[in-house]
Amino acid sequence: MLLRIVIDLLIAVGLIFALAGTKGVLKMPDTFCRMQASTCISTLGILGVCLGGLLYAIFVMHSPATAVKVALIGALVLFTNPIGSHAIAKGAYQAGIRPEKPMETDDYGRDFDE
């Protein structure tokens, strides 16, 4: 019973952070801030749900094969997500996308834009 509560809590925490990220993606003022909010979904959102699923697979389903696959899904998302984010952010900046409100400091533009 206690275990079930812990599992549900983990999944709920993951969903709350995914909700926060989704709201950020829709409402943030410019492209780069929207990407920052989307990182929330793919880190704690995924991690919370995967951890809950992992505990469920081990202690309720008693199936190590499923548990290993859930853990691998979490690990692979954590490995591949930053590479995609980095490429999208750099590509967006070099394609000429700038926020409407000027940024606080813009060292990248200063060093490469001239």
């Binding site: 920052q36 909010a37 990182t39 880190t43 997500n81 930053p82 980095h86």
Partner: peptide, 9 residues
């Protein structure tokens, strides 16, 4: 990049 709030460009 994985910590929300910072992205290495």
């Amino acid at each position: 990049t994985l910590t929300p709030g910072t992205i290495t460009m």
